[in-house]
Simulated assay, not measured.
Amino acid sequence: MAEVDLTLIVTVHDETLVCGPTMRSADLAVAAARDAGYAVQAVVALDKATDETTAYFHQPAFDHWERRVMGEGDLGRVRNALVPEVDGRYIAFLDADDLFSENWLVEGIALLDAAGERGERAIAHPEVNMIFDGVRAVLHNVDQDSPLFTPYFLYLRNCYDSLCMAPREAHLEVPYVHRDIPNGLSFQDWQFAIETMSRGWKHVVAPDTIIFKRRRDYSLMVESKQRRSLVRSVPEMLIDRVRDLARGGGGRA
C-alpha cells in the first residue's frame, strides 16, 4: 500500500449550506496537493451532526470523501479518536464553516518535509488568519523563531489557530484536553500549542497561506469568551519556566 502523505479531516456538527464554500476550498486544496505528487486521504467527521447536516453531507457530491460518524461532541476528542485510525503521516484539520487557501496543503507539507530533513519536529500553520461574518479582523501568525515571538504572549492569548498541520506523532504525544466550558475551562488549541512547544515541537508558518475563519453569532468560541473561560493551569507557564518554553525547556517536572 502506498504511503499517504496527508490526511485532511473536516469536522462537522450543525453546519449545512455554509459547508458548500468550505468543501469547495478543501477540494481545490486537495487537488493541488495531489497535482504536486502528494497522496491525500480526505475524511469528513460527522460529530453528533444534526439530521440536516448529515443529510447534506450524504449528497453524491461528497462521495469522494470518507465519512466517519462520531459521537464525541468535542473537537479535541474527535481529533484524539481519529488520529490513530487515519493513514496520513501528516494530519490537517478544517472546521466545516471555515475555508483555507488553495495552496495551504501543498505549502504545509513542503514546510514539514523540509523541517524533517533538518531534524526538526515542526507543526505548521497558515500565515494569515482572516476572520469574517460576525467579526472582521486579520491576524498575522509568526514563526516561533521570529524575533517578534515571545512565549509571554501566551499568558494573554493563543498564538496559533486550531487549524494546523502536524505529524501524526505530535498528536499522539500531546493529545487534546477536553473542553469543560461550564467550569470555565476551554481553548484546547491554546493548551496544545503550549504543551507541544515545551516538548520540542516548533510552530512554523507557511508563507502566503490563509485560513478564513467564520465567526458565527453563537459558537463554542463565543460561549467560551462569554463565560470568561481560561486555559488550564499547566506547569509550562510557571513564571520561572515560561521564558524557556519556545526552546523546549518549559516541560513538566
Rank of each mutant, 00 (worst) to 15 (best):
V30L: 09
I239S: 11
E117R: 14
L46P: 03
R168C: 02
Q59N: 15
P84C: 10
A2G: 04
Q144M: 14
T150I: 12
A45Q: 10
V204N: 02
R118G: 01
A115S: 12
E169C: 13
A49N: 01
W104L: 15
D143F: 10
T209I: 10
M70W: 06
P182K: 04
D51L: 12
A115D: 11
G108F: 03
V222G: 00
A96Q: 02
L8V: 12
V18D: 08
P151Q: 00
R252P: 05
V128G: 05
E107I: 07
V128D: 07
T196C: 01
E173K: 11
D63Y: 06
T16W: 11
T22M: 09
L6M: 05
V106N: 05
E127A: 15
A45H: 08
L28P: 05
R157P: 01
G37L: 03
G71F: 11
V69E: 14
S233E: 10
A253W: 09
G248N: 11
I109W: 05
V4A: 04
Y218S: 00
V43S: 01
V4S: 05
P167G: 02
V142L: 13
G37D: 02
G37C: 02
A32Y: 05
K225E: 00
R215L: 06
T22E: 02
T16Q: 06
A166H: 10
L75K: 14
H203P: 07
V10P: 08
R136I: 11
N80V: 07
A246E: 03
R79K: 11
A206N: 08
D217P: 12
S233Q: 08
S198T: 02
D143E: 13
P60I: 04
Y176S: 08
V12Y: 02
I9A: 10
D208H: 14
V177W: 13
H140E: 09
E107R: 15
A31D: 14
N183E: 13
T150S: 15
H13L: 02
D87Y: 07
W104F: 13
N80Y: 08
R89Q: 12
G71M: 13
A170I: 05
D180R: 10
L99C: 12
R199H: 03
G73T: 06
V83T: 03
A110Q: 15
I91M: 10
D51G: 12
L245E: 08
Y218V: 00
D51T: 15
E72M: 13
L245D: 04
Y218T: 00
F132L: 05
Q188P: 11
L94H: 08
G73A: 09
